[in-house]
Nucleic acid binder design. Structure first.
Ligand code: FES
Ligand code: FES
Lengths: 132, 132
DNA sequence: TTATATACGACTATATTAGTCGTAAATCAT
DNA sequence: ATGATTTACGACTAATATAGTCGTATATAA
């Protein structure tokens, strides 16, 4: 309940790694997977996702790898989570209006309020806040 | 990701239901399951849990049912979530210190900060806040 | 041309959540 | 007493979501 996924966790580890490094130094999925004990294929897929979203740059070939493509300050966490995992809401009906309970539902409003609080909390954070 | 479980959702629906009702009126699991379209057995189990935790009172026998046992203002949401679902943290290592990544983990601190924010947000809410 | 790295989707495995079922015990009405 | 109704509880199964693997393709440096 209210858990972050490993996908996000690994992505954050990777991004933090880049921030701790010389700006344009490349790190390969392999290196990084060893360093942090993350399954290589999985981490690779995550880095690929980040590359597709232009959060990191990818360089192919031997001695290739990834590096940060943007200033982490410019990416807010809500957006980041949604890039990685799709719509973020404590319940599905926040987005998906096909909820069966909807007619009789007596907690929609308060739950939406909670949702808004969580979202705005993450709206006010950027990837850079994961640095410290 | 960052989802609430149905168990919690149903519990909240039930509790809100009691709050909308005459103070000592009993509602059976059956009635309520019909009213909100929730599987009866499941809702029953949830109400039983709430009864065990003395949040609701249970009355057996025909014309029995449940009613609120406490002032909802007195139960904070963090505690409530943990009663229903166990330890609440965006990642397991918040509680469980047996994390494999721990040595090399570079995001523990910031993630704990986020965790604290979420917890304190719910610490400052009570069940009564689900009323409106 | 070979070794190394990214790219991507399909697939499998595992864990979590959701829901069901069987059985017991209390209680009320007849 | 007996039967109907309801809570109590745990074991079980089903469904879904998450985590991880694999095969294959493509780019590139040496
Ligand atoms: S549960 Fe979907 S609207 Fe309340
Ligand atoms: S992932 Fe467990 S300590 Fe960071």
């Amino acid at each position: 309940m209210l858990k972050i996924t490993r996908k996000v966790e690994y992505a954050l580890i990777a991004l933090r790694h880049f921030q701790n490094q010389e700006k344009d130094k490349l790190t390969s999925a392999k290196e990084m997977s060893k360093a942090y004990g993350i399954p290589q294929e999985l981490l690779a897929k995550i880095l690929q996702r980040l590359a597709r979203e232009n959060i990191v740059d990818a360089v192919k070939g031997p001695a290739g790898g990834y590096k940060l493509a943007v200033d982490p300050k410019t990416i807010n966490m809500t957006k980041f989570f949604e890039i990685m995992e799709g719509p973020m809401g404590i319940m599905d009906c926040y987005f998906d209006s096909g909820c069966e309970q909807l007619q009789s539902c007596n907690i929609r409003t308060p739950l939406n309020r909670i949702n808004d609080s969580i979202r705005s909390m993450f709206d006010n954070m950027t990837l850079a806040d994961i640095t410290y």
